[in-house]
């Protein structure tokens, strides 16, 4: 595996890997929610860089794209749910230090053992010229069923999460008889409904 890569790629993977771990640690060191969120984004971007160095352009770019959107939305919610929503007062991301240390060490041991003990298969086919096309054909072909199920499950989770989180249901919007002409929304939104 490593022998396929050029010296530059190995150096980039190493540096970016260290960077991603370092900014992952920074998430728990910094004392502001905005900094913690963007340290996490930095960690994800470093992982995207690793994928880029491995010549998996589509996966790299899509990782950067999705994680950026996710972090930008998450920072709003994290700030909202903080005890101090202004966010510039000191805070910490570390809770239940002993339990999380045990969990973290356990996960580390399991992963390291897995990496070194499992007899990983070696690649016996040549590299495809276009990894993006190969990925698309896998998702739209042999793995279509899995992707569809995951997509529906994710969508159902989003809907369920929103339904559970919102304090306002249809009776709040359209009245107890559901017969109001206009929904009573706090923010109009723009469309005449």
């Amino acid at each position: 595996m490593l022998s396929d890569l050029s010296g530059w790629a190995i150096a980039a993977v190493t540096v970016l890997g260290v960077l991603s771990v370092a900014s992952g640690i920074a998430v728990f060191v910094v004392d502001s929610m905005a900094r913690a969120t963007f340290a996490l984004l930095g960690s994800f971007l470093a992982v995207a860089g690793v994928l880029l160095a491995l010549d998996l352009v589509y996966l790299a770019v899509v990782t950067a794209l999705m994680m950026t959107i996710e972090m930008a939305i998450m920072v709003v919610f994290m700030l909202m749910f903080m005890m101090n929503p202004a966010g510039l007062m000191p805070m910490t991301m570390v809770h239940n230090a002993r339990g999380s240390a045990v969990l973290g060490a356990g996960a580390f041991v399991v992963l390291v053992l897995g990496i070194w003990l499992i007899d990983w298969p070696t690649r016996d086919v040549s590299r495809p010229p276009d990894s993006t096309r190969q990925l698309g054909e896998a998702i739209m072909g042999s793995h279509m069923l899995v992707m569809l199920l995951i997509g529906i499950a994710l969508f159902a989770t989003i809907l369920a999460g929103t339904v559970l989180a919102t304090a306002r249901g249809r009776y709040d919007r359209f009245g107890s008889g559901l017969d109001a002409q206009q929904p009573a929304d706090p923010v109009p939104g723009g469309l005449p409904r």
């Binding site: 352009v57 770019v61 899509v62 950067a64 794209l65 950026t68 993006t132 096309r133």
Partner: peptide, 11 residues
């Protein structure tokens, strides 16, 4: 030039 230029622009 990559096989995912448009996604790069979007990212």
């Amino acid at each position: 030039s990559t096989s995912a230029d448009l996604v790069w622009f979007n990212a």
